[in-house]
Design a protein around this nucleic acid. Structure first.
Lengths: 207, 207, 207, 207
DNA sequence: GATGAATGAGTCTTCATTCAT
DNA sequence: CATGAATGAAGACTCATTCAT
């Protein structure tokens, strides 16, 4: 087997394992068993375990960027509608992510290997949030406040992702020493609601 | 120090450490150093490391649920508008999450401890997606397709979270053996765009 | 067993092993087998293998320094003869080194673990030099050029050690880019011979 | 390149590396990188790593022996004075050792590759002994007990080498089960001092 | 002869957990 | 209850050597 093929084979096995078991619970032993190679062979192609993982994510990222550029070149920015533009972007990204479930799992950092029991606990938490949101949406549809046209499943995922990430963005990444005050949080909530009330396009948008 | 206080003290230290360094990179040694107790003492209150972590997340979840019930009881479902309802829900959750940055980080599973270098790689990936989305939004505002009233920062976080979680929901959680076909993915993308085009409320909604 | 005793026990075993098998051929496995402790115990007292070795040498060095100071304080510099002074120094150092054969071997860096076969080759080389010198000395005694009073064995060791270290001192430590020229080497040889011709005391020295 | 040249090239590179980094810290990888050959090629000329090292030392030893014989043949034993004889031997050996700093370092076994930190510790020890001896000598010169004609630098190296090797000779090589007693050590010290008091030539020696 | 990919036994080191005091 | 010394299974990584091309 040629060097490139071997490297590729290792990455392939490692990707599946990292995705399934997470970073810490994927051991070199697992990788070599899966790839049917000797322990030392791994280290002929990668300096260490990190290197394997980083290579996977970096490659994935590069492919994503290439895809983005490639797709961007295909559309006519002068004529496409904003909605069409958004749809195009979303669709391409989804298609891209759908191609490799393992990479999707890794890159979305949602399966990075906590011990089974620990993992369940968190999943349970997130699921509860999503369920609650789905219930709210269904109730809204019954009450005719929420249009029947929206997909409850997708929208619940959207709102959960949106909510958790927004929280993370402000309260972890842009965390403030003395925390956020009531006013500031209300502002964030209002910005949040605005998006989901009117959408993100101007009303005169007829597309 | 009483048993309850001691247990609480351990959890407090563990929470900060788990949030900062992640599950695997937080060692019992770190916890006992921080809590200034002996190694064996930890095992008098918790059966093992997992138990500590699970206790933290479970407690957090219970508090969240209590908060939800409590807040739900305070509003009058008969009179509140759908938008008001959404705003209320979002606001309470954000307030709740804002109170404890560490717990927020843990529960959102975004800081669960990969080695520094590895962590950076993924952060970089997510940041790029968010940056790209923010750029799109700003461009939309210049072209007057996107209202100036939306907050680019928040909306970028919303869209990133929404997109990644939607992808994860379908392509990892509800993954199909033979993958999704083009039609199915287009359907998801359309559902996605719909939400962000019209919002999630019926047009007759005047609130 | 108390912490101090255990640490001491580990050092004792390690010292013997390092001396016998050298640094690289002494494995943690050997040490724990010898000390009858668990693998992890070693790392409770030392950060790593180097730390053990360095602790041994440093302790030895400290003891030597203390001995030197202590002995120096006991002699009266105003009345002692130079020869007496030299004798005192040498004797104290020899007594010190004689106390622990293993430490002597380690500190003198003459047995620091090359593989057996490799070690033999070098020993052989050094032995030949020493043998040759001893032969020269015995021949000198037969010819009545060398006094019968000198101890051939000791003197051969002296000359071998003196010669090799002098060479090392100049040709390795104080090595010159373009090497030493004939004149310079003759100077070193002359200085060398001077010491062994007249001794290192002035002729008027009657002690 | 011919077989002999290739073998020579490998030995040359290996010699420098062994001298610089020591036996254990010189890896086949280092040698092939330096010699710009393939990994397998080394094993076409040498059976293993030891073989390379032993070849180096053996070759060095053979050269030394040849030199000794050659030089011995040039002098007239009937007429040369004992001092002249010693000078001749010392000078030839020094010239020989001065020619190849790396080989000198290897053969003197003073740089055979302990990890840097470990190595420093021992160097420090040896240096302290040498410094102390040099101080003693300088003090002796001030007091006019030691002739100004001796070279302090060289003599310190001589005494250090002499002392350490003598200790090694008796306490390691010829070690006794129950150690040496005070009387025996005094005897060694006296023999040692004798050499450095009167030199190793008979007083009637007028050379 | 030359190559360099592959091998795998062998090392150090880590760290959650136990248990005698 | 609290302590912290002791444990040892488990894991990452190394590197001399082999062998098919």
């Amino acid at each position: 087997m040629k060097a490139d093929e071997r490297k590729e084979a290792i990455l392939k096995c490692a990707t599946r394992l990292f995705s399934t078991q997470g970073y810490y619970q994927t051991h070199i032993s697992d990788i070599i068993k899966e790839a049917q190679i000797a322990r030392g062979t791994v280290y002929q192609y990668f300096t260490n375990k990190d290197d394997i993982f980083i290579t996977i994510v970096d490659t994935f990222f590069d492919k994503w960027r290439d895809m983005i550029s490639f797709e961007l070149a295909k559309i006519d920015l002068a004529t496409i509608s904003p909605k069409g533009y958004l749809r195009h972007r979303i669709l391409q990204t989804l298609i891209f992510l759908s191609k490799d479930s393992d990479l999707c799992n890794i890159a979305l950092r949602l399966g990075l290997g906590l011990p089974e029991k620990v993992s369940q606990t968190i999943n349970h938490f997130e699921q509860k949030i999503m369920d609650m949101i789905a219930d709210d949406l269904r109730f809204g549809q019954q009450e005719h406040n929420v249009p029947d046209t929206i997909n409850v499943d997708t929208t619940a995922a959207i709102l959960t992702g949106a909510l958790l990430r927004t929280a993370h963005h402000y309260f972890v990444n842009k965390r403030k020493a003395k925390g956020y005050n009531a006013k500031e949080i209300e502002k964030i909530a209002d910005d949040f609601v605005t998006v989901f009330t009117h959408g993100i396009f101007l009303p005169r948008d007829k597309n």
